[in-house]
Amino acid sequence: MYAVDLHSHSRFFHGWPGRATRYDAFGLKLNTIAARVRGLDALAVTNHDYTYSAETRFPTIPGIEVSSSDGHILVVGPNPPSRTEVNQLSAAETVDLAHDRQCAAILAHPYRNSNARNADADFDAIEINGKNPEHIAQTKELAKRLDLPLVGGSDAHYLVEVGRAYTRIDADELTPAAIATAIRDGRVTAVTKFGPLDRAIDRAYTRLHTEKQWMESDGPELAER
């Protein structure tokens, strides 16, 4: 059994996608230190629309957070796509791409800026997102309705966020292929750890994200809470 945070980012902000800046390696190193301190066995690196990796002593799982036309989808496993374009793929197309590459496809934060939960896509799991503890009950109901397993991912951009939500994975070995197979087989359990600092960060993030969404979106329909 392995404890893996299936959703993390190796830079604070999302500018210049695809540029392997020095901060990426440093950010990943900080995140892996936090993951080790929090008792995790591995960390999936899932930057927006590009796959990034760096040499690290702590086990990492390759991944990408695809900005599909329906919402964000995590693709984790041995061979995620190196780059994707925003809104280029539908949810169903993203899932098919993940499976073609022997990866698992996870519906990320289904109640934050996403309509992917309504898409006709063969997801392998649904994420309980570390940035949105207020959505846990809804997410559990969605997973039950769609008959899909739940996984946990912190969605960390800062090292203090790593491990707030993670996944216990029943796999034979800690390899990207074994982790992806276990997710697709449903041998996973979502775990959350929200302390006082995590909840304070969540409140601040929710305010910031709500303001940003109203400025950038075409309407309030994606803001379902």
Results as ranks from 00 to 15, higher is better:
1 M>V: 14
1 M>Q: 14
1 M>R: 14
4 V>M: 06
4 V>F: 03
5 D>C: 02
5 D>Y: 05
6 L>C: 02
6 L>I: 08
7 H>L: 05
7 H>C: 02
8 S>C: 08
10 S>L: 04
12 F>R: 13
13 F>C: 08
14 H>V: 06
16 W>L: 15
17 P>C: 08
20 A>G: 06
24 D>C: 13
24 D>I: 13
26 F>V: 15
27 G>Q: 10
27 G>P: 04
28 L>D: 10
30 L>V: 06
32 T>N: 08
39 G>P: 11
40 L>I: 03
40 L>E: 05
41 D>I: 07
42 A>V: 01
43 L>K: 01
43 L>R: 01
46 T>F: 05
47 N>Q: 04
50 Y>T: 09
50 Y>P: 03
52 Y>L: 12
59 P>V: 01
59 P>F: 00
60 T>Q: 05
60 T>C: 12
62 P>E: 10
63 G>I: 07
69 S>E: 08
77 G>H: 07
77 G>S: 10
82 S>T: 13
82 S>I: 14
83 R>P: 05
83 R>L: 11
83 R>Q: 04
85 E>W: 12
85 E>F: 14
86 V>M: 13
86 V>W: 13
87 N>W: 06
87 N>H: 14
91 A>D: 02
97 L>V: 05
100 D>T: 05
101 R>T: 03
105 A>M: 09
108 A>W: 04
109 H>G: 07
116 A>Q: 03
116 A>K: 00
116 A>M: 03
117 R>F: 08
123 F>K: 00
124 D>R: 00
124 D>Q: 10
129 N>I: 08
129 N>W: 05
131 K>T: 07
131 K>C: 05
132 N>I: 06
132 N>A: 12
136 I>F: 04
136 I>A: 02
137 A>C: 09
138 Q>G: 04
139 T>N: 02
142 L>A: 08
144 K>G: 15
147 D>E: 15
147 D>Y: 01
150 L>F: 06
153 G>V: 01
154 S>D: 12
157 H>I: 07
159 L>R: 15
162 V>F: 08
163 G>A: 03
164 R>F: 11
164 R>D: 14
164 R>H: 13
165 A>C: 13
166 Y>T: 06
166 Y>C: 07
168 R>S: 05
170 D>F: 10
174 L>A: 09
174 L>F: 04
180 A>K: 00
182 A>L: 02
183 I>C: 00
184 R>E: 02
184 R>T: 05
184 R>D: 05
188 V>L: 00
190 A>H: 00
191 V>G: 05
192 T>M: 01
192 T>F: 11
192 T>C: 04
198 D>H: 11
198 D>I: 02
206 T>F: 06
206 T>H: 08
209 H>Q: 13
209 H>A: 15
211 E>V: 13
211 E>R: 15
212 K>M: 09
213 Q>G: 10
218 D>A: 15
219 G>M: 03
222 L>W: 07
224 E>D: 11
225 R>T: 13
